[in-house]
Nucleic acid binder design. Structure first.
Lengths: 149, 149
DNA sequence: GCATTTAGTAAGGTAGCTTGACTATATGGC
DNA sequence: GCCATATAGTCAAGCTACCTTACTAAATGC
């Protein structure tokens, strides 16, 4: 009875496409053995250097979040066994957030899942479209990017 | 000292572009006289038929939310004067959510603001790019759309 | 005319942030 | 070397935007 009639507008399309990709990725990761996976946790894990670790305050800056919020998510991820905190050798105030073996395995799975979703999408719209879309999105994103001040 | 190095990947680009557009829109609406504007409220307002109103349960279905969540946001928007509830003439259980004059004014402003952001983006990347991007996004979004079952 | 379905409400919980206040360490000027 | 100030991180409390569970009231189907 109810016709959804989604608005066909560039802003809505951008938001919608991002949302669809995100939902797909979250669902695929949960299916791939990470039931406690959420986007905010993935974003945080993606902001940690996999060799040397990263200080909390740097993670917060990359994600545009407060260091308190980062601290909470790191607490969760440490309790779940993906991350650990260790003292920074060069700065007595700082702590480095580093990966555990489980965290590194997560990263590998995430890369694989991303590739699979991308391949499926490429199969539907074609490789060429994917390339063009990437280029246009890159342009649009940098045009909207807030000034780095 | 810290180099952000954002991943250049189609999924990340989709999520990022959607996020940027959304943040822009929210900020512009707040600047345009709606300081209590949030995305979830805008989504809800966009799901209400501006002539005949819409039943709560239909809004919930469109947004993929529970009717309780819809009820809460409608409460807020009604308290702020954008919406009102009225009894449905055809179903004694149902209530129609309808716009007030303030709600309709909000819609008009939202359309104007959307147009402005779009025009600014078009000025940076060109009209042709905008058209191509829209087409590609539409294809990609429909390719990822979950089955309507 | 009673069982089932549907529309909406009430109460409480959770994730993912925020602000404010605090401690510990580092650094730059004198 | 000492102090003022800035920086890294923590603790506590609160907020938004949802969700789940449990209900009431009205409509619908045999």
């Amino acid at each position: 009875m109810t016709i959804p009639t989604p608005p066909d507008h560039i802003g809505w399309l951008l938001v919608r496409a991002g949302q669809l990709w995100r939902d797909r990725f979250v669902a695929a990761m949960q299916a791939a053995g990470y039931p406690d996976f959420t986007l905010s946790r993935a974003n945080l894990l993606g902001s940690v250097d996999r060799y040397h670790g990263t200080r909390m305050v740097d993670i917060a800056a990359r994600l545009g979040m407060t260091k308190q919020a980062v601290g909470q998510i790191v607490d969760d991820l440490a309790a779940a066994g993906y991350l650990a905190r260790e003292a920074d050798a060069e700065d007595g105030r700082a702590k480095r957030v580093v990966y555990t073996a489980r965290g590194l395995a997560f990263l590998k799975t995430a890369d694989r899942v991303k590739g699979e979703i991308e391949a499926e999408l490429a199969g539907k719209v074609g490789e060429q479209t994917m390339g063009e879309l990437s280029d246009l999105l890159r342009d649009a994103a940098s045009a909207m990017e807030p000034p780095t001040s």
